Amino acid sequence: DHDVVPEDKFQETLHLKEKEGCPQAFHALLSWLLTQDSTAILDFWRVLFKDYNLERYGRLQPILDSFPKDVDLSQPRKGRKPPAVPKALVPPPRLPTKRKASEEARAAAPAALTPRGTASPGSQLKAKPPKKPESSAEQQRLPLGNGIQTMSASVQRAVAMSSGDVPGARGAVEGILIQQVFESGGSKKCIQVGGEFYTPSKFEDSGSGKNKARSSSGPKPLVRAKGAQGAAPGGGEARLGQQGSVPAPLALPSDPQLHQKNEDECAVCRDGGELICCDGCPRAFHLACLSPPLREIPSGTWRCSSCLQATVQEVQPRAEEPRPQEPPVETPLPPGLRSAGEEVRGPPGEPLAGMDTTLVYKHLPAPPSAAPLPGLDSSALHPLLCVGPEGQQNLAPGARCGVCGDGTDVLRCTHCAAAFHWRCHFPAGTSRPGTGLRCRSCSGDVTPAPVEGVLAPSPARLAPGPAKDDTASHEPALHRDDLESLLSEHTFDGILQWAIQSMARPAAPFPS
């Protein structure tokens, strides 16, 4: 592969990997390779389809078979030569091979799209000592099968071997295949498990690692696999990028399955594409389908809103127990993405979901129960707010008499603000006073009005108090039968009158 990737590009890729991570280095090298001529790309395919690569990765054979028959990708048995050289000459001794072996032994695996480039050397060096003999053996194999790289107009793939297949390693990572398949204008990513390549439709969760975000852009890794992070704060999961590491605690105790298979379609829109997988259930989501939507993949363990709600429900009964003089119970939860139609709101002032922060849900004790107040519409209280300059209440639009249902020339009671006709409430011909108009209920007259088809109010509507207090003497005590009587009149003013009279009014101040 030294004929494909020059030394300066190799060093530039290593520097970019240390600065921005393996995914960015892979993407940059792939983009550079696509700008080369067809001879360089053909050399790339020839390096990929060597015999030892085909033996190690069985899924490469179907890719090789898909090439046109007129494309010669065979390799000479006596060494490598550029395709432009007409004579089959043995190339001179390859010093770059020693360079590659020494550099890969030092860096474990470079971040390139060629056999030198995919593992994360920093994480491997940190986690190597417990498994040094086995990992050293794996390093000797890295130059042979560490990076199976493929690129063409139909298929483009980048393979990364790992030393996680050490025997006896619980939940060992089998390997990473960062794979971009450009077929019919689409893009897919796969993962390699035990020599087999699994596409998103049959993606397997190998051991402790999972394909957290099938994305090839942005600074985030394709698999949430930063070796420096180790395990999740809650004892979460091992990262795919942690090559040759000792077994780590796999999943939280509440995880239903340690080796679950995540779905390959969004649980909201039932469509495929780039998904984020939940650590607590097999569901996966688009970032845009979450509520609120996320802009980037959160670091650490992530769970959907259903799993978060289940966790909150487990903690909430203990938080609601009476604990005198104790601060509110704080339950730190990872930043969760909410699927459509589901929402768990945190306290005000918290950062938005999706940031690399930890939301704190506070379970406050329930407030003391209070008697429910009568629910009145805002339009129902409008007549009470229509007060004239002299303190006389004006008529609201649409006000109707509670007896006849007519809204023409209605009066407004100064005591309960109900609309009424003087002739309907006082049919006996009582003279109307000039000021202080009161309806039949507030004036103490319980004589029913002779209106055909309208039920008369119940005599129990009024329960006047002592006459010594004029204001308190007109406080009506309405009961269920009074409400039914008012409802039978089918008037809004009657219902409003009952609601206003049912509310307690402050006692009249004593004259000074």
Rank of each mutant, 00 (worst) to 15 (best):
L437A: 10
H490C: 01
D445I: 11
D409W: 01
Q313N: 06
A366Y: 01
A456S: 06
P466K: 07
L455K: 11
H363L: 15
D406R: 05
Q497Y: 04
G272N: 12
F492H: 01
S431K: 12
Q313E: 12
D377K: 03
Q242M: 10
L364R: 09
A504V: 08
T471R: 09
L487A: 03
S378R: 08
N394A: 14
R318K: 04
R480H: 02
D255Q: 09
C442W: 01
R338M: 01
H259G: 11
C304I: 08
L384I: 08
E475G: 06
D255I: 14
I495Q: 03
H421I: 01
T408Y: 12
P459C: 07
D469W: 10
G349I: 06
G388E: 15
A417R: 14
G300L: 12
C424W: 02
C416E: 02
L376F: 08
D356P: 09
P383I: 02
G436Q: 07
L359R: 11
Q260G: 10
T471A: 15
G280W: 13
R505T: 06
L294E: 06
Q501C: 11
C269T: 03
A477P: 14
F285D: 10
G341A: 14
V387Q: 01
R303P: 14
L364M: 02
P335V: 12
D406Y: 14
P448T: 06
P509R: 03
T447S: 07
P383H: 01
C266I: 05
P317R: 12
D279Q: 12
R323H: 09
A504E: 09
C269G: 05
L411Q: 06
P256N: 02
Q325N: 12
A463K: 04
L373R: 10
G273Y: 09
P327V: 09
F492A: 04
G346T: 08
P459L: 10
G241P: 06
E343H: 14
L381D: 10
A396I: 12
Q497C: 01
C289L: 09
E321M: 15
V329N: 14
P322V: 10
R303E: 06
A508F: 07
P317G: 12
T471I: 15
Q316F: 08
E489K: 04
T357P: 08
Q260K: 12
S512F: 10
T408H: 11
S305K: 11
E489G: 03
E265T: 03
D469V: 09
L287V: 09
Q316Y: 11
P511N: 00
